[in-house]
Each structure stands twice: as structure tokens, then as C-alpha cells.
Amino acid sequence: MDDPALYAPMTYDESGYPRYAFPVDHPAHGDDDYTRRRNRIAFQGAEHVVGTPAPEIDYHELDHQTWRNIQRALAERHAEYAAADVVAWAAALDLPTDHVPQLEEVNSRLRRMTGYALTPAVGFVPIEQFYGVLADEKFYAAQFIRHHSQPFFSPEADVVHELVGHSPALGNDKVAELYRLTGEAVRRVESPRTIELISRVFWFTLEYGVIEENGLHRAYGAGLLSSFGELESFRKADIRPLNLTEMATTEYDITDYQHVLFAGRSIGHVHDFFADFLRAVDDEDPDRIGVSF
């Protein structure tokens, strides 16, 4: 999958509003009704003001059916492949299984748990903005759901990725602290290279992290937890111990299954590793580590 339009099939019209045009290889190509729904969701997101309640989305019954299918399939795979802590986080958040949750429906739970809230994301949010608002206990989240024809695949990060992947972690105090520290670090540093360094470590921990549990590797990263196929294949990856230099210098492809992953000994080990990095990172780190970006 090397066409960037597959995971960012959005343009802006002359008025500055988002419009989707799905390429031939995208599951939604040719579905005018789905395209209209996506455009409407994007318009609502573009109109939203951060800090105000997220807009309510009028999901189609096909969207709700897609959510139900995914929830059933992922619940089975989480029981087999997810870290025990993740299963506990998800149970505490208790997302509805019969319909696509509204962001405010989830926010009412997250605020009570850790103070975090999801805010609508439209397309790609600039990296400094995406990570920066984490310091304010906000997380940019997509509101659309993948096309019903391929419920177990999405070339884009959709509401399944946000709610199944990230939200349970945002509801846990220990892990939510890592999101906050990420935002504080990004706002503290000045160099784009340092922000890229932070992003890479975030990718290999909170997005695609695994831990060792009872002799097996189990997933806790959002990208793994929300991917039906990747959960079944991640143990075939080159799984290495946590290592800052290797994380900073390992290339990855956001459109493909990950071929290199990093494992902590426990969630607590990951927390200490990432938190220590985030508290100390500065604009000299890219040169000290020897990264080339």
C-alpha cells in the first residue's frame, strides 16, 4: 500500500472545507452514500472548536453493524493477544458494544477516570498540535468508521482505532500520565528533529508497544489493539527489548504491518522507560543519539 491517498483521501474545496475522494483501491471507492456521510462528519469536525463538546454524529445502521462486528472479533483476539492490563482498562471504560459511541459518550467516562477528553480530528493534524494538546488532557480522535465492506481493515485511523486502541489507556492514570508527559515534552522543545524523536518513541510504545507476559508477547499499543490482522501476526515481527537508540533509528511504514516492535517487561517497565525519556528529552538529544532525520 504505497498510495498516500489510501490513508489520507481528503482534499479541501475553495471554501476551505474538507472533501473526500476515495481512490480505486480504497474500500469506499464508488460508495456515494458513504462518501456523503464522511464529508458530513469532516464538515462537523472542521466547524468544531477545541474545548467545546464534540459534535454528535448521525451514524448509519451500517456503521453500527460494522462496530458490532469489529467489537465481537476484537474481543476474541484481545482475550488471546492483549496484555492483561489492557483487558482490565477496557473493562473499566466499558465501551458500548451495540452502537458506535459518540465522543461525548466516551468523554463522560474518561473525564471521571483521568480528566482526558477526545476532540474531533479532521484528516492529519500537524504533529506539534496533535501531541501538544495532550498536555491539556485532550486527544485528537477521528469520528468516522471504516467502510462496512471491510470491517477488519482500514487504511486510515478511524473511530475504532481511537476508541478501542487509545481510549482504554487514556482512562488509566498511569498510562494517561505518559500522554500528558508527551504533550509537555513537545511543547517544551523547539527543534522539529526532537519532536520527531519523541514521535518515534511514542510510536514504538503507545502506538505499537508489546510486553512480555507469562512467557508470551502481548499487545498494549493502540495500533495493534485496533487491528484484527496485526494482532494475529505481530508475534512474527522482530521483537526487541526497549532501546531508545534503536527506536529512534528504526524506520517504519504506517501503511503496513510493523516488522520491528519493542517489548517491555511489564506496563510498569514501559511507563518508567518512556516517562524518564519524556522528562529529560531536550533539543540536544537527536545529535547525542546520532539520528539522521
Results as ranks from 00 to 15, higher is better:
Glu105Trp: 09
Pro126Asn: 10
Ala92Phe: 09
Asp85Asn: 14
Val125Asp: 00
Thr245His: 07
Ala79Tyr: 08
Leu74Cys: 02
Gln129Glu: 15
Arg77Pro: 00
Pro9Arg: 00
Pro192Arg: 08
Leu231Tyr: 07
Gly183Ile: 01
Ile41Asp: 00
Asp136Ser: 11
Ala263Gln: 02
Ser266Val: 05
Pro9Glu: 01
Trp203Pro: 01
Ala73Ile: 00
Tyr59Cys: 01
Ala263Arg: 01
Val260Ser: 02
Arg188Ala: 06
Leu170Phe: 03
Pro151Val: 09
Ile289Ser: 00
Thr114Trp: 08
Glu137Phe: 06
Ala90Glu: 09
Gly264Pro: 03
Thr114Ile: 08
Arg218Thr: 14
Phe277Gly: 00
Arg68Asn: 04
Phe228Asn: 05
Asp283Lys: 11
Leu62Lys: 13
Pro241Thr: 10
Phe139Ile: 07
Thr249Met: 10
Leu170Pro: 11
His99Gly: 03
Trp89Ile: 03
Gln65Met: 13
Asp85Glu: 13
Ser266Gln: 08
Asp58Pro: 08
Met10Trp: 05
Phe144Glu: 03
Gly221Cys: 03
Ile70Ser: 01
Glu105Ala: 08
Gly183Val: 01
Gly123Pro: 08
Val186Met: 11
Ile57Trp: 00
Ala142Val: 05
Pro241Met: 12
Glu213Lys: 09
Ala91Asn: 12
Trp203Leu: 04
Leu110Thr: 10
Ala176Val: 10
Phe152Asp: 09
Ala176Gly: 12
Ala54Leu: 02
Gln71Trp: 13
Ile267Asp: 00
Val49Lys: 12
Met1Ala: 13
Leu163Gln: 00
Asp98Gly: 08
Asp238Gln: 13
Tyr252His: 14
Gln129Thr: 14
Ser226Thr: 03
Leu231Ala: 06
Phe139Ala: 08
Asp94Pro: 04
Ile195Gly: 04
Ala91Met: 10
Arg37Asn: 11
Thr245Gln: 08
Phe228Val: 02
Arg288Met: 05
Thr255Ser: 15
His29Ala: 13
Glu61Ser: 11
Pro27Gly: 05
Phe153Asp: 07
His166Lys: 03
